[in-house]
């Protein structure tokens, strides 16, 4: 008697603990985790945190941001690559770790094809900044100087083997200028070096440079974007100036490969709603984050194009990992 009635309970308990294959109807039945491969406080982190807060409203479960910093975002990416594709683990990707690092280092995974993009949330523009009283009034001045005296100009970049490093290398290739790279730890340190006059120009994102620009300390010469940025409306794009350089630091959500389509759809819908939510838009506006939606397919294409574009310029003389 006891045995007979006990069995289903045991089975049910077993099922509960082991977890039957994720069911789209019940999804999500536990908190969803967004992995950020960088320390709290940066652009990637802020994008994740601002959307996570709103998305939990539409998913009915908490959406938690977990920072797994290290190796220019690769540690976080590797973690999600190895995660169970059940829709409960997402990665913020599209920047350095996806389109730049693979050109400098051998990775255990293919950052473009081993992930399933969900959507793009924002783009962080990449800008060329100089001191407000710098002798180079325009990007063309800077390029001319870089061509005339190769290697004389110093450029502050945030980290070696990242997107900003790649931006300088692509620009060098497309314009013919040659500069000396000085890598700093993170955007703030790079901008501090520029503000202190220790480098001739610096690569930074407009949201990071915002305070210094407002203070009249530094100015933006150009962006490597496709169109002008609302944060830096006076800065031309390199394309406008006639140079074929296009690099954006894209930030979006990606899933490990193999998430069931129904669950992916559910996530995509919820995060799209969160993206359209006025609360998210207001937060993004205040943080000077340029939100820019792309759906799964277009995001994948955009990442691939960026990856290839950087690869063309970086591959030949890239530092080789032993």
């Amino acid at each position: 008697m006891f045995k007979r009635s006990g069995l289903p309970v045991v089975v049910a308990c077993f099922a509960l603990f082991c977890g039957f294959p994720a069911n789209a109807q019940e999804f999500p039945s536990k908190p969803i985790e967004i992995i950020v491969g960088f320390a709290p406080g940066g652009g990637t982190d802020m994008a994740a945190r601002s959307i996570a807060d709103v998305a939990s409203k539409y998913l009915g479960q908490p959406v938690v941001v977990t920072n797994k910093p290290g190796a220019t975002g690769i540690i976080g990416a590797q973690y999600v690559y190895n995660a169970k594709p059940d829709g409960y683990t997402l990665l913020v990707a599209g920047g350095s770790e996806t389109v730049a690092v693979p050109h400098y280092k051998k990775l255990a995974f293919d950052p473009i094809n081993d992930f399933d993009p969900l959507m793009r949330i924002m783009v962080e523009r990449v800008g060329f900044y100089v001191l407000a009283d710098s002798p180079w009034k325009s990007m063309n001045d800077l390029i001319a100087e870089g061509k005339k005296n190769p290697g004389k100009l110093t450029s502050g970049i945030s980290g070696i083997g990242g997107l900003h490093h790649a931006t300088v290398q692509v620009t060098e290739k497309k314009t013919g200028m040659a500069v000396t790279l000085i890598p700093y730890k993170g955007g703030a340190e790079t901008l501090a070096a520029l503000a202190g006059g220790h480098v001739n120009f610096a690569i930074a994102s407009p949201n990071e440079a915002y305070a210094l620009v407002q203070a009249g300390r530094v100015r933006c010469l150009a962006l490597s974007a496709l169109e002008r940025s609302p944060t830096e409306p006076n800065a031309p794009t390199l394309k406008e100036l006639g140079y074929d350089v296009y690099i954006d630091n894209q930030k979006g959500l990606v899933l490990p490969k193999g998430v069931p389509p129904a669950i992916k759809q559910k996530l995509a819908d919820a995060f799209k709603k969160a993206y359209d939510d006025p609360q998210f838009k207001a937060t993004a506006e205040k943080l000077k984050l340029e939100i820019s939606y792309l759906n799964s397919e277009d995001f994948h294409k955009a990442l691939k194009a960026m990856y290839e574009q950087i690869g063309e310029s970086v591959k030949p003389d890239a530092p080789k990992a032993p």
């Binding site: 406080g41 501090a192 305070a211 203070a215 943080l287």
Partner: peptide, 23 residues
């Protein structure tokens, strides 16, 4: 100057910007 020298200060900066204050 609006330059955070470490990640704690970067978060404080983010919070200030969310409130519309630019250091």
């Amino acid at each position: 100057l609006g330059i955070p020298t470490n990640s704690v200060l970067a978060l404080i900066l983010a919070s200030m910007m969310m409130h519309g204050v630019t250091p």
